[in-house]
Nucleic acid binder design. Structure first.
Length: 467
RNA sequence: GGCCCGUUCGUCUAUCGGUUAGGACGUCAGGUUUUCAACCUGAAAAGAGGGGUUCGACUCCCCUACGGGCUACCA
């Protein structure tokens, strides 16, 4: 009987859920969910000074937006301190760990001397094999007894077989002198206790895996399957950092990317399934595997994100999309829509969605529908209008100012005007829009058609563009 | 410094010894179009460098360069 897959996402709550973390979470989620396994969430909050509840909230919110649901409750690593310490003492009792009374001052001096002598700075504690009778009456740390020869092989699903010489491993601290466990111990104990079978995490932990394996070995616990994935880099190829736009998941939400598009993009970043670029969640779940993950770091590319987002917006059904849109409007702090606006969007969504890559774009394309009535000209913008727009404006102003223009009336005025200027009806759309909205750019015949209620024309245009 | 990992078009990638090195985003040029957009067609664009192994290397090995990571009583 195959063992059930259990993965986990274990961020430290020291900031927002950044894009690299979001991808790690996604990979873990896809792997577990695609195999009927469990996806757990553990907050690594043992660093009390840097951990904040706000950060935890931001991480949960980010995961929620991305639709990455986890099984069970959120585990707080800090809650496990007693258990972690227990394991450290068990190791001590088993003789796989020892008390080290070396002061930080002593260690520092040792390192400095080693550095100047050009030797390894790994600290070799003199207390490793010391007799208990020589123990000092001062605070001590508990260090693991690392193997001193041989090699440790990390069988990594992404990186392959990685061999580390054991003389590169030091007797790392398990329990600090104040009795608190160190991260390296906590992860291992928690992963074991939570029944994690597959550890999928950033490759900055690759070397740590060797250290952690010492603990698994000493406790005689089964080692999980490792998969160390390359980190995401910024557009300049450097590690993603706050300086060059390492944004949190929430920023992307507020920028109006649909979660489905983000999932697709993030999944495709560093992972591939042949030449498939655009795919649904169901496909990702079915296809995702560890073999498809590349070994080199990928750069975050907003253009591609936009493209994929656009494809997802176009592929979402009208009702669901509108739901998402209003949700975005709420999250990004805009006013909630009126019934009129909702009704307008109902009519327009089917053709609007083909042209928008993000929610703000969708809103922009729907300007005529969403803008409040009556539509009045913007005096300031009107000064910059071209002559055609200006004359349309003067023609239309009476109709607009009473606030109750009818579509027939408007269309009639436009047709007459078009005739007098020997222009096609369509060519008027731009200047007209500029005149009405005070915007000189991105006029849209679609918008006009929608305003005029000419949905048949719209449908025809739309069909034509697709064939 | 020591150790570990990586390197295919600008970007994300396919290729798992034999291909005119494929796709996607972006870019550029045309086309269609009732303005944009969408859509259609086409173009430019890549195996870091050097050695091997092999009948044959992007694929395997070594060296160099560059990038990244780890080397804490941080996570």
């Amino acid at each position: 009987m195959p063992e059930q897959v259990v993965t986990r996402f274990a961020p430290s709550p020291t900031g927002f859920l950044h894009i690299g973390g979001a991808r790690t979470a996604l990979f873990n989620w896809l792997y577990a969910r695609g195999r009927g396994g469990k996806f757990l969430l553990r907050i690594e909050d043992t660093d009390r000074a840097r951990s904040t509840p706000e950060a935890t909230a931001a991480i949960l919110q980010g995961l929620d937006w991305l639709g990455l649901d986890y099984d069970g409750d959120v585990v707080s690593q800090f809650d496990g301190v007693t258990r972690h310490a227990e394991v450290a003492h068990e190791l001590l009792a088993k003789g796989r760990a020892y008390k080290c009374f070396a002061t930080q001052q002593e260690i520092e001096t040792f390192r400095e001397e080693a550095r100047t002598a050009g030797q390894s700075t790994l600290f070799r504690s003199p207390w490793r094999d010391a007799d208990p009778s020589s123990y000092r009456d001062t605070p001590f740390v508990i260090r693991i007894k690392a193997p001193q020869d041989g090699t440790t092989i990390i069988n990594d699903e992404v990186q392959g077989e990685v061999t580390i010489r054991n003389d590169q491993l030091d007797d790392m601290v398990l329990l600090r002198s104040d009795g608190t466990p160190v991260y390296m111990l906590a992860v291992v104990v928690d992963d074991h206790d939570m029944g994690v079978t597959h550890v999928i995490r950033g490759d900055d932990h690759l070397n740590n895996a060797a250290r952690q394996m010492m603990i698994y070995d000493a406790m005689e616990w089964p080692v999980p399957v490792w998969a160390h994935i390359p980190l995401i880099h910024g557009p300049d190829g450097k590690k993603l950092s706050k300086r060059h736009g390492a944004l949190g998941a929430q920023e992307y939400q507020v920028m109006g990317y649909p979660a489905a598009g983000m999932r697709n993009y993030l999944a495709r970043l560093g992972w591939s399934h042949g030449n498939d670029e655009f795919f649904t969640d169901a496909q990702a779940l079915e296809w995702f595997d560890l073999q498809g993950i590349g070994k080199s770091p990928a750069r975050f590319d907003t253009k591609k994100l936009e493209n994929l987002s656009g494809q997802h917006i176009a592929a979402t059904d009208d009702a669901a999309l509108q739901q998402e849109l209003w949700n975005f409007v709420r999250v990004s702090g805009h006013l909630s829509p009126t019934d009129d606006q909702k009704a307008g969007m109902d009519r327009a969504m089917y053709c609007l969605k083909d042209r928008a890559r993000t929610f703000p774009e969708l809103i922009d394309k729907a300007h005529f529908i969403l803008t409040s009535r009556p539509i009045l000209p913007d005096d300031k913008a009107a000064k910059h209008l071209d002559t055609v727009s200006r004359s349309i404006l003067s023609e239309l102003t009476p109709h607009l100012q009473n606030g109750s223009w009818s579509r027939d009336e408007l269309e009639e005025v436009m047709s007459r005007f078009a005739e007098s200027k020997s222009m096609t009806f369509g060519k008027l759309a731009g200047p007209l829009r500029a005149a009405l909205a005070g915007r000189a750019a991105t006029p849209s015949v679609y918008d006009m058609m929608l305003v005029l209620g000419r949905t048949e024309t719209l449908a025809r245009l739309n069909d034509a563009s697709h064939s």
